Amino acid sequence: MSIQWFPGHMHLTRKAIGQRIKDIDVVIELLDARLPASSANPLLAELTEGRPTLKVLNKQDLADAARTPAWLDWYNARPGTRAIALDASDTAPARRLIEGCRQLAPTRRGMARPMRVLIVGVPNVGKSTLINTLSARREARTGDEAGITRQEQRIVLDDDFYLWDTPGMLWPRIVVPESGERLAASGAVGRNAYDEEEVAMALLAYLKQHYAALLVARYKLARPEAEIAALHDDELLDLIARKRGAVMSGGRLNLQKAAEIVLTDLRSGSIGRVTLETPDEYAAWLAAAHEREAERAERRAEQRKRDERRARRTGE
């Protein structure tokens, strides 16, 4: 399943970040703790290259507590990078961001050398909620729809600490299909860019293998976990539709409604605490994607050669 979403305002955001980064000391990238690599934007990494980065695994209260430490270790092993996990609605841990930035740029203190921080992330990752928590005021609009923040905002957190918020941004082409599925499931992608039934089934395919007990409990499936894990994805969605009353006239199942239920339950945390990837899984997905990209480039090169030979024969 190929999921792509890069509307016009994201082009403007890319340009704005390219200009703003010249005056920035530290970049905070907010990630979804349930998909810590899939929610990391490679375009942002390119735009902010060379700047110390604080990776914040947000919504840790929704993520699998047993998996989050591995992701923190994975990011903390990178040069010029620190990683922390937090729940953006919790005031006390949110203030840890300021100290994390101070550690990454210790010389930026006082009015003569104020700390200048840019906060970035994919849509619907919780930036606006975090900023409101940090500033103790409702500085930024919040909501559960991707793309609410549409322009840059400047927030003063301390006398010598300035934070610039930017709209959520994806990247022009998501080459790892598993990442596209997870971004859509989390709500980071506009609803018109994907098929909800397909995304819900892709989500269930992962959950039934790693969190079957949570599915049994949430949807009262009354079947052994092993049996749930063995179901085909569409069979599992059918079962959830029946259990949740997503039935139309004539007894036909409303799979669209069932898919919406599953996705809403993931986003709200109603399914339970889940993390939809491990470092090893993501590494395997990325390697496979790079291999496909290399094959694609090779096919294009061969096609260009064929076109050139044909053009030469035609011109003779």
Results as ranks from 00 to 15, higher is better:
Glu197Ile: 13
Ser179Met: 05
Thr133Phe: 00
Gly187His: 01
Ala258Ile: 07
Trp285Leu: 01
Val27Tyr: 00
Arg182Asp: 11
Arg252Val: 15
Ala258Tyr: 02
Thr81Phe: 06
Ser186Gly: 09
Leu44Glu: 07
Ala200His: 02
Arg138Lys: 15
Tyr162Arg: 11
Ser2Arg: 14
Leu157Gln: 11
Thr142Pro: 04
Lys127Gln: 06
Gly190Trp: 07
Thr107Asp: 15
Ile84Ala: 05
Arg306Tyr: 08
Ile84Thr: 08
Glu197Lys: 11
Arg218Tyr: 04
Leu31Val: 04
Ala193Pro: 03
Glu29Val: 01
Gly190Ile: 06
Ala288Asp: 15
Ala301Asp: 14
Ser2Pro: 09
Glu152Met: 14
Glu308Lys: 14
Arg182Asn: 11
Pro123Gly: 08
Glu308Ile: 12
Arg300Thr: 09
Arg223Asp: 07
Val122Trp: 03
Asn192Met: 06
Arg300Leu: 15
Asp158Ala: 15
Glu281Leu: 11
Glu99His: 05
Leu207Asp: 03
Asp159Glu: 15
Ser186Asp: 07
Thr314Phe: 10
Ala140Thr: 00
Arg306Asp: 12
Glu198Leu: 13
Met111Lys: 13
Gly315Tyr: 13
Glu235Ala: 13
Ala226Glu: 14
Gly251Gln: 03
Leu231Ala: 04
Leu163Met: 10
Gly126Phe: 08
Gly80Arg: 08
Ala136Gln: 14
Ala146Ser: 05
Val122Tyr: 08
Ser39Thr: 10
